[in-house]
């Protein structure tokens, strides 16, 4: 960039990083409550869990790691909380990323201690699988034969009360996937047509726009749009957790970006005008 340009085009980038950091810190410390409209897709996700029958199992699939936990962790946490509040049986399963099973286990243990959930009776961890397609095809036929043992005690799944009456995906009420990748295509392609279970998806914000065609066609019942979706879910549950606090700095940071883009464009325009006059 020319040193002769408008001053707005020569702002040191460290000032911009500093401004962003300041807005995030202030937004987290000072609880400014900005209005949050709950989207129809988040409502449908919530209603799928709220209306799930208690005699069926909810499958919670995770495919995220430390790199996207800023969005996927609060999503998973708030839905696990909802499941336990309703006292629904659930099973964890992880695909794609090796960290996913440990992080989901950690979250489930945290919430289980609060809601007195007993491992094996109320919930179970089916572990991590690398082969997504092969595992899903197997689960359509028989979950116990495909996955065989749980991830914590390595005991046969049939021995656990939580798996009673569960043979295949037809015995699930809701399939909820929390993901940092495009794994929904495997679920839609291989599982959704074989069960009446509501398939709900919680992706990172990067991926969410491409899912609207699947929401429109009904292949995906509900969706949580990144951290915003988690905040909406918290609002529906009348909870005030991390995302309710975090959504304010997200909004403030986006306002800052709007302002900076405006200033940058004005700087470019002013530079061109200066060059034209000289």
């Amino acid at each position: 960039m020319s040193n002769l340009g408008h001053p707005l085009t020569r702002i040191n980038r460290h000032w911009l990083y500093g401004a962003l950091l300041a807005i995030v810190v202030i937004g987290l410390i000072v609880p400014i409550s900005l209005p949050l409209a709950v989207s129809p897709e988040a409502t449908r996700f919530y209603e799928a869990i709220e209306s799930a029958p208690k005699d069926k199992l909810v499958l919670v699939s995770t495919l995220w790691s430390a790199s996207t936990q800023g969005e996927n962790r609060p999503q998973t946490q708030v839905v696990l909380k909802h499941l336990m509040k309703r006292h629904l049986r659930f099973a964890l399963i992880a695909f794609g990323d090796a960290q996913a099973t440990t992080l989901a286990q950690e979250l489930a243990e945290e919430q289980a201690a609060i809601y007195k959930y007993e491992y094996g009776k109320d919930w179970i961890n089916l572990g991590y699988r690398q082969d997504i397609a092969g595992t899903l095809k197997g689960m359509v036929r028989n979950i116990n034969e495909t996955l065989k043992t749980d991830s914590v005690n390595r005991r046969p799944l049939a021995e656990y009360p939580v798996m009673a009456g569960v043979r295949n995906v037809k015995d699930l009420s809701v399939i909820a996937e929390f993901s940092a990748s495009g794994n929904y295509k495997s679920w839609v392609g291989l599982v959704v047509g074989s069960t009446d279970a509501a398939f709900c998806y919680a992706p990172t914000s990067v991926m969410a726009p491409e899912l609207y065609t699947y929401l429109d066609s009904g292949q995906i019942r509900g969706m949580l749009f990144g951290i915003k979706g988690a905040a909406e879910y918290e609002q529906m549950m009348n909870e005030k957790g991390f995302t309710t606090r975090a959504i304010t700095p997200v909004s403030l940071a986006l306002v800052l970006l709007f302002v900076l883009i405006g200033l940058g464009n004005y700087g470019m325009y002013a530079t061109k005008k200066m060059e034209g006059n000289s």
Binding site: L20, L21, V24, V25, G27, L28, I29, S67, T68, Q69, G70, E71, R73, T204, S205, V206, A208, P209, E210, F225, G226, I227, K228, F242, R245, A246, P249, V250, A253, L254, L257
Partner: peptide, 23 residues
């Protein structure tokens, strides 16, 4: 444009998560 806006929001969320962890 919508995808880019969502990407920016995702990156902000990751930053906020780390800042919250530190604080």
């Amino acid at each position: 444009g919508a995808i880019f806006g969502s990407t920016v929001m995702a990156r902000m969320a990751l930053l906020i998560d780390r800042v919250w962890f530190l604080m």
